[in-house]
Write a protein that binds this DNA or RNA. Structure first.
Length: 585
RNA sequence: GGUGCGGUAGUUCAGUUUGGUUAGAAUACAUGCCUGUCACGCAUGGGGUCGCGAGUUCGAGCCUCGUCCGCACCGCCA
């Protein structure tokens, strides 16, 4: 037996016991006549003590230990003469009588501490060392707990976890696929699933009326702090349900997670239509930890000779409570912020509500106090508030800019507390959105999404205005999940493909098996998928989903530890029937 | 495809403004001293392709161009 206990569990009650611990040497403090070694495993840290007085040769042995050596130590648990309140095991130490070096270790390139001295680059190249750090390990422990609670909740509600294949077909629409060559089928390729969407719908046809899977999905698109090329979904689907049933089921699951993991009771999730989300927040994933909703000011401010506003198609603003104390310098910085190319506003107008109730704006020469009071009334602003206004010739674009400004103000005013959570449903997404690039309508969610029944007639007359039975769950401005009621009627599915510009032949080629399956008795069904990485990041308060993934990819989609992707031997390529390979740089 | 920031000791960074003798600090590492430390302390020491390449110059860590790499973002992500 290697060990009797872990390094995190011994305390004052164990004093006098003979124990054996295994772990890594975290820190070594040599005092001359005595030596302390902190031994670490994933459960905690325990202090080992060696003394010349007790055993000089053992103490000498301890002095030769280096950082991160793998140790096995046997000795007696003793109460410390000077305790360390910072450590749960800080009241005791082990007076060692046998020390065995199970393995030596090279000095790690960065310190194995929560506040490590290692940069991102280095930590990713030595991720296995990075994962020794308590703060990183804690993220994976949280991830495990959340996945476990998900399985528990879904199992209790009759869901079956079914595995679906990873080698499937490339699908048109949506993200780029990762592809895998087929040795046995020359010139043909598998694709890795962007999600098991079609497969889970086929499982509904098979009668698995409550399915889920915690499953890897793959999208060959550029990365972000919240986007990895392979990521994990909690993929769920139900039969004989309406939208309401699905919202209730998964609101319940979210509530369960908050309770089980955070000990928090969350309120009923408010619902907002996609249209209103765009109107009041300029985003389909609003951060509702704070209000600061948009107010449209076009009617109030247009027509007073201020050319910027008079020529604008949309004027809108937000009211930052208590921010009238913002200095000119701060306001200039905000203006610069919204003028950054990524945001693209032309400028910003501000108005302060002063202590006497008067409004002082940056465009006073165009507006009477009377008009400015209308402005104040539009926000129900009070003394001390700051109104920020953007305008533009494109309402949607201006709202997007205003959205960035709102989030920045929320951050500056400390309204985006990581320990506070605000959840909501965004519902009634449009079926389609116009693609400038492809010059056609594209499915906003995916092409299997059902239109709202009352909007079906519009498919022929005004497809762009058709709303879908689609919904997203948003927490703190993060889209943690999304789903829809699916089409289960092959005729309607064919119609939707038609609007997307598929010829019947193309639709048959790509999705024939699905439409065929629907002819054999498809139940009404729908579902939802959570992004597990994002959900864990939210609960852990992380800035990047990388921190809750054991071995993530970098900005360029590379695994810096494995140095993947890599080149193949010519013989492998030949076997795969790949004759032309563009050499990497 | 694009924008911004960064790349100097094992590591984290300063030095670049205004080109000029031997490129510094902290930490880590090594050695020595130290019997109650817990970020132990003290002393000494070793450690550098200033990402790479070209150019300007009498002279480049510093200026110019190119290139590679990392991070954040835009496009993209049904």
């Amino acid at each position: 037996m290697y060990r009797t206990n872990t390094c995190g569990e011994l305390n004052i009650a164990n004093v006098g016991q003979e124990v054996t611990l295994c772990g890594w040497a975290q820190r070594i403090r040599k005092m001359g006549g005595m030596t302390f070694i902190d031994i670490r495993d994933r459960y905690g840290i325990t202090q080992l003590v060696f003394s010349n007085e007790i055993n000089a040769s053992l103490c000498e042995q301890a002095n030769r230990i280096g950082r991160e050596y793998v140790l096995q130590a046997t000795g007696k648990v003793a109460e410390r003469s000077s305790k360390n309140a910072k450590n749960p095991t800080g009241e005791i130490e082990i007076i060692v009588d046998t020390l065995k070096v199970l393995n030596e270790a090279a000095t790690p390139p960065f310190t194995i501490e929560d506040d490590t001295d290692g940069g991102d680059d280095l930590r990713m190249r030595y991720r296995y060392l990075d994962l020794r750090r308590t703060c990183v390990r804690a993220n994976l422990e949280l991830r495990h707990k959340m996945a476990f609670e998900v399985r528990k909740y879904l199992d209790e509600h009759g869901f079956l976890e079914v595995e679906t294949p990873v080698l499937v077909n490339s699908t048109p629409e949506g993200a780029r696929d990762f592809v895998v060559p087929s040795r046995m089928n020359a010139g043909q390729f598998y694709a890795l699933p962007q999600s098991p969407q079609i497969l889970k719908q086929l499982l509904m046809v098979s009668g698995f009326d409550r399915y889920f899977q915690i499953v890897k999905c793959f999208r060959d698109e550029d990365l972000r702090a919240d986007r990895q090329p392979e990521f994990t979904q909690i993929d769920c689907e139900m039969s004989f349900v309406e939208q309401e049933d699905i919202l209730n089921m998964f609101e319940g699951m979210t509530r369960h997670l908050f309770k089980a993991i955070k000990g928090m009771d969350i309120p009923v999730l408010p619902r907002i239509s996609w249209h209103d989300a765009m109107k009041y927040y300029g985003s389909d994933k609003p951060d509702t930890r704070f209000e600061m909703k948009f107010v449209e000011l076009t009617d109030i401010l247009k027509g007073y000779g201020f050319a910027v506003f008079d020529s604008a198609a949309y004027i809108g603003g937000i009211c930052a409570k208590g921010a009238a104390s913002y200095t000119r310098k701060q306001l200039d910085a905000l203006t610069e912020y919204v003028k950054r190319p990524q945001i693209g506003a032309k400028g910003m107008v501000y108005a302060r509500v002063e202590a006497d109730g008067n409004v002082k704006s940056s465009v006073d020469k165009f507006y009477s106090q009377e008009v400015l009071q209308q402005l104040k009334a539009a926000f129900q602003a009070e003394a001390g508030d700051l109104i920020l206004i953007l305008s533009g010739d494109n309402a949607d674009k201006t709202r997007k800019q205003l959205c960035e400004l709102r989030l920045e103000m929320g951050s500056q005013l400390g309204l985006r507390d990581k320990n506070k959570y605000s959840c909501l449903w965004v519902v009634d997404f449009p079926m389609y959105e116009w693609s400038e690039e492809e010059n056609r309508l594209m499915a906003m969610h995916h092409p299997f999404t059902s239109p709202k029944p009352e909007d079906i007639p519009l498919l022929d007359t005004d497809p762009a205005s058709v709303r879908a039975n689609a919904y997203d769950m948003v927490i703190n401005g993060v889209e943690v999940g999304g789903g829809s009621i699916r089409i289960h009627d092959s005729q309607l599915q064919a119609k939707v493909f038609e609007v997307l510009g598929f010829t019947p032949e193309k639709a048959q080629e790509k999705f024939g098996f699905l439409m065929n399956a629907f002819k054999f008795g498809a139940p009404p069904h729908g579902g939802l998928a959570y992004g597990l990485d994002r959900f864990v990041s939210l609960f852990a308060g992380l800035d990047s989903i990388r921190d809750c993934i054991a071995f993530p990819k970098n900005n360029q989609g590379r695994d810096m530890m494995l140095n993947a992707p890599g080149e193949l031997d010519p013989s492998q390529l030949e076997e795969l029937n790949i004759t032309t390979v563009i050499k990497s740089k």
